[in-house]
Every structure is written in C-alpha cells, then in structure tokens.
Design a binder for these strands. Sequence first.
DNA 1: AAATTTTATTTGCATATACAAATAAAATTC
DNA 2: GAATTTTATTTGTATATGCAAATAAAATTT
Lengths: 140, 140
Amino acid sequence: MKTTESRYHKCLYFTSNALARKVEKLAIESWKSVDLSPSHAYVLMVVLEEPGIQPGTLSDEMQLTPSTITRLIEKLEEKKMVIRTTEGKITNVYPTPKAKELQPELKSCVADFYQRYAAILGQKESDQFVRTMGAFADRL
Amino acid sequence: MKTTESRYHKCLYFTSNALARKVEKLAIESWKSVDLSPSHAYVLMVVLEEPGIQPGTLSDEMQLTPSTITRLIEKLEEKKMVIRTTEGKITNVYPTPKAKELQPELKSCVADFYQRYAAILGQKESDQFVRTMGAFADRL
DNA sequence: AAATTTTATTTGCATATACAAATAAAATTC
DNA sequence: GAATTTTATTTGTATATGCAAATAAAATTT
C-alpha cells in the first residue's frame, strides 16, 4: 500500500504553504467583486481606517516588507483608490473619495470571506484555529 | 489606546500568509547548507524516495500546479540533481548520483528545520498544530 | 554647525507561483 | 481505423513578494 499522498503532510513548511495557497484562492473569490487582490484590499482597508497612515506603519502592521507595501500602494494609486503625499522623508497615504465609497463593499467582502471559510471549517473551530495560528506565527 | 497592531490578526487570510512567510524564512535557513530553496529540496527528497516519479504525481502530492513542478524540476536539472526521461507523453524524473550523495545532508536539513521550530513552539504543541493545520487545509 | 548615523521610502533585481494556452501523446468513441 | 476527447507536460505571461542598494531626510554626535 502506498502512502505517498501524506509523505510530507506532517511538515510545517509544507502544511503552512499549502494552507496559505488554499486560503489565497478562497480569498481571491471573495474579493473578486471589488477587482482587488486580497493584499490590495487589506492595505486599502487599513488606509480607510487610518487615513494618512505611513507605509512603514503599514509594513509593521501587515508584516510585509516596506518594498512590498510600496508596490501595493502604487497599484492602489493607479486605481485611484489612494493618494500619497510626501513631506520630507515621511509619506502619508490617504483614501480617495472613490475608496470611501467602496468601503461598505469591502466590508461585505470581508464578511463573505469569513462566511466561506466558516461554512467549511466551522465558525468556532475556525475562530479558534485562526487565534492559535496567529499565536504561533507571533512566536516565530 | 491604539490597537492597530492586531487589527487584522483575526483574519484567516492575514494569519495564514503571515505564518507561511515566517515559516519560509526559517526553512530557508535550514536548507541553506545544501544551496536549495525549501521547495526545491522537497521536490528532490520526493524524487529520491520515489525515483522515476512523474511530474503529475509530484504536483498532486505537493499540491503545487504542474507548471510550478516543471519549473522546480528544471532548476534541479540545471543543478544536476535530477534527470528527466520522456517517453511519449509521460516523463520520469530520476535522482542523479550527486543527489543520492546529498540525501543524508537533506535529511539533516529536515531535522534541523524541525528542531528549529520545535525549539520555539514546543515539540508536542507544534506537532499537534501541524496536524490540525493539515486537517484544515485538506478541508478547504 | 559639520559630520555621522539613523530612519523612511523607493527602486532594481531575483524568485516562486499560478493560470491559460500550446503541444503532443494516449485513450475512447464512432 | 479515423475522429474526438482526455491526459501529461511544457511554455508564455503575469503577479506577489523579498533582499539589497539607492535616496533622501531627520536626528544625533562631536
């Protein structure tokens, strides 16, 4: 009897990547309606909640490198969702009116995404799982 | 009081990606000694365990797309770690003697990686966590 | 206040991955 | 057995992300 299908399923590397890829797919579906990737949508939502936030703060909060944040913001700027103002060495990122209009829709994407995975994984179980995963991630 | 640092930490999208990025970094360290990325090392290890394995099987097992598997194999071929033989529409991937020599070293990288995260997260806790994560990933 | 160091951001480049299309062979249907 | 469909793999292209270097401004030191 072959057991190939579970050969590396016990490894943290394999498993965390496989999970992230599957979650990514699910998330893409949920944010399709706003024509934004999940990453872009998250950045935008943070900017909406904290207008004028600096890229460095976004980088810290989202645990993405500054260069990645720059690229995400550039794209959002192209889409007229945010504007950047630079004064000296600091940059502030503000949502545009267009982004503010979109905010309810973004919130419904969050809700849709949550519904999707809670439906599959269970509400309590998935909540607990996300908490645990967050705690493990913080420790690494 | 600001709570920005945990704003999206409750979301499966954010958390699974953050975890995967951190695990990736840890894994890169562990495989540095064999000059292979974790993905390449995993493919190679599967090929070593199952010489002649087909790309499609690797794709199924590793839950990566066929095109990604092709690229990973190409790189391993450049590094003279595997050879491909094609007969009709099927391709078989075999480890080279060089790869076979490296096998013990690869195994010690796996062990090193496990040690690293078990040291941080705890052995039992991390084992349990990986099992849980695998189960959730399978359900998605 | 000039020189140095630190901080914030962006840019250049590299890598991993995916999707869709292309290719080509095998299997199935008629 | 010819035509069609399915299967296996590769290729072209796009995206997300990171690291290291470049820029440039602010803060600190001397």
